[in-house]
Nucleic acid binder design. Sequence first.
DNA 1: CGTTGATTGAGTCTCGTTTTCAACGGTGAT
DNA 2: ATCACCGTTGAAAACGAGACTCAATCAACG
Lengths: 162, 162
Amino acid sequence: MLMMDLFRSYLHQNRLPLTHQREAIAMALFEAEHHQSVDDLADLLRGRGEHVGKATIYRTLNLLVEAGLARELDFGEGFKRYEHQAGETQHDYLICTSCGKVARFRREAMDRLQADVASELGFAVQSRMLKIYGFCDACAGAESSGQAVGSPASVGAGPETG
Amino acid sequence: MLMMDLFRSYLHQNRLPLTHQREAIAMALFEAEHHQSVDDLADLLRGRGEHVGKATIYRTLNLLVEAGLARELDFGEGFKRYEHQAGETQHDYLICTSCGKVARFRREAMDRLQADVASELGFAVQSRMLKIYGFCDACAGAESSGQAVGSPASVGAGPETG
DNA sequence: CGTTGATTGAGTCTCGTTTTCAACGGTGAT
DNA sequence: ATCACCGTTGAAAACGAGACTCAATCAACG
């Protein structure tokens, strides 16, 4: 697997040992289709009969992020999620504040806009995180749409409203 | 002050009392120019001779967010920040991963892009959070720019890399 | 193989945020 | 004004994600 080779290469070049645990954690993340939490990964590994401490999962995920092979995500759930970064181009997120569904999308225009703004304000871009919050198709029907001042404050899964 | 009136109105319509603490906290946030942490606000209030417990600050900030008068921000510092939402239009953020400086910007194109994507994917937008990470002018000079696989993993104030 | 130096993991610690609960205080009615 | 109702307050405790500790373990290289 390519991703695994890249990880091995990263470890080797930084004189870090490739342990059984690191391999198992990286494999689990690389094989996963969606963004995984640390607990997700712990469960997944336990299911495979692997004994891996959570501290090690945290440490290995940080390694993978440093290696550029994974990205850290925060959908406001109170804990982080991780997804592998298979050399894919940057993508952005739509998040349903009702059911929590996350959809990914890509727009060239977004990259251009980012480059324009950055050069204008004198920033050298490293990465970005765009999250658009709202209601997905399925959830749009219901919802009391408590709009700001004056309503019952029925905001559900309150996102990072910024 | 307009913001304060809106808050009063929100409380009244929801049959919630306007306490001295709530007024003090809201005032402090409304008067603040930049995004404040809970500790910032606690210090500020203490400096004014107001005795307000942190639990109350948290609770009042949540109220303000529900009222649509404040927004919650997370710049990856390990704690949340809040800024008042004075009916201003949506804005986005550039964050220096080296010194932590935060710059705000606005682009019409961003709103259009958001609307396009949302309608295309069947989402009803509530809000968004766009954070562009990179190095500001001042910090761009130094930095070993540890680029992904193979380098010393010298990632500094690692942002939400997603 | 043996040595070296980093990793592992169960448990502990940290710290932001939430909850608890008894005392307190707005608010609207009287 | 006064009262009663009901939500608020705040100190302390609880909570939870994530980082740290340290002795035992293990990968890697000669």
